[in-house]
Structures are given as structure tokens and as C-alpha cells.
Amino acid sequence: MKTVPVSTTINGDAAEFICAPDETLLDVLRNRMGLTGAKEGCGTGDCGACSVTLDGRLVCSCLVLGVEAEGAEIATIEGLATGDGLHPLQQAFIDHAALQCGICTPGILVAAKALLDKNPDPSETELRYWLAGNLCRCTGYDKIIRAVQAAARQMRSA
């Protein structure tokens, strides 16, 4: 299959890659761009471990083709922390022990940020339904919910 050149922005930087027409954005990020923070837990959009945003919209990158990223802005877990420190969500996940094995953590952080960008003060129910597409098998979600709530509080007061 002939590869296709694609021009995008990834975490604020211009990025160009070539990929096969049937190659997922997740495979492009992981195998061509060296961005292994997004994980493949299922490949079918059920687990959310590969969550990234595409032009601000939360997507499972395993369900997006690399070629669909042409001209788009992609944000991944690698872009969440800025040069001078962790994002409040990242710090809250450490402070509240919201991760055990950590494999779902990048996807959940990306998803939680996408929620807080739209809704800075979600109710617990809104938060639980928003994160229902991100499976975590270790924590029972309790500490994840507490961490996102704590980060949201901090971001609102900042």
C-alpha cells in the first residue's frame, strides 16, 4: 500500500509523517513519532487508553486514521506538562494516588482535561459518565474521581 504524507501539529509543534492509508493515528503516534504515552488496550475504542484530542475533540486514536490528522491539531499526554511543571491534573493524580499500574493514566488525564476545558465544575455524576469510556482495572475509579475533582477546584481558583 502506498504511503501518504500528512502535515499536522502535535502538542503545538508542526509535525509531518507518512503513513499507510489504513494505519491508525495511534500506530502513527507510537511507531512513527515515538510518542508511546498513548496506549493500545483494545484497538476497538472500548478502553480509552489511547485517548488524544484532535482539534480539541476527545477521540480514541485507535479509531482514527493517521491520514485523518491532515491539518489537525493533535494533543497527547506528552504535551500536558509544560516546561515549568506538571499540569494540575497530573499533580493531583500523584497527590491522590489516583494510579496504580498507570497504563490507563495517560488516557484518563487526556480525557479529564478535555472535560475540564468544556466544563470547569463538573458534578461527580458528570465526571463519572465522561470517564465511562476510560477503563481502569486497578483503582475502582474512586481516587481518580477525587483527583480530578481536586484538580478542577484548583484550576477554578487559579
Binding site: R30, E78, A81, F93, I94, A97, P106
Partner: peptide, 20 residues
């Protein structure tokens, strides 16, 4: 309730798992 030493690696995507 100390911070775990592998915390930053795991919230930034730096931690390397089996497929990475």
C-alpha cells in the same frame, strides 16, 4: 501518604510498558 517515586513517569507518558 508519600508521593510514589514512579508517579511523574506515569502521569507524563514517560513510563515504558511492554509494548513501548
Amino acid at each position: 501518604r508519600v508521593a510514589r517515586p514512579d508517579g511523574i513517569d506515569k502521569v507524563t507518558g514517560r513510563a515504558l510498558y511492554g509494548a513501548d
